[in-house]
Amino acid sequence: MLAVENLKVSYGQSEVIHGLSFAVKPAEIVAIMGRNGMGKTTLMKSLMGIVPSSSGVIRIGDTPVQTLESFERVERGLAYVPQGRMIFSTMTVKENIETGLTVTGETEVPPQIYELFPVLLDMKGRRGGNLSGGQQQQLAIARALASRPKVLLLDEPTEGIQPSIIKEMARTLRRIRDDIGLSIVVSEQVLSFALDMADRVLVIERGEIAHEATRAGIDEAKVASFLSV
């Protein structure tokens, strides 16, 4: 569904992603793990077209998208939940979700979204900026789902969220995957969350894939050793 080949990304002179390749199958959940500063956010941003890639190919289905602008990638089926959520804080919850409808041309928020996140229905008239961190995270996911994506990118969704809610979030994301059959790429530092939800785990270290394991064959101790400093 999503294929990345030999992707390189630099900030000015310093290259942060050095020729990364991986593929995500339809309805697969892939966790990208790595310590702080290893390039997870940079990878997500370059997939999304926020940071330009210097070489390599990014494909959604069969369509190469690496030269397209962000909004065109969303039209092709990519959706993004950034680290730090970045909801539109002066807009209401409902309006925030509706911004995601731009590419589908729908005018009403699909009811499934409120079913997944009932709390957003209760608060739909409130300004996004006045929600708690966890509620904002749900809002950011809802906004991304509104564009009916084929591939959902989540950058550290667990950051600043308490453990019980993290478990709940893993369940919700798996349920979304089962319901709509979309692929999910999630970057993560919390191993338990990744094990809860991912079908496959990739560890990146200094912009390269250092380790890869399926959920069944995962060697927890080995992955943990990559994540500890």
Binding site: G49, E69, Y80, M86, T90, T99, T102, V103
Partner: peptide, 20 residues
């Protein structure tokens, strides 16, 4: 709504599918 989204956060507006 799109205008206000762009005003708030141009990069994010693009990433939700708005032609900024």
């Amino acid at each position: 709504k799109r205008v206000r989204a762009v005003v708030q956060n141009r990069v994010m507006a693009g990433a939700v599918g708005i032609n900024t």
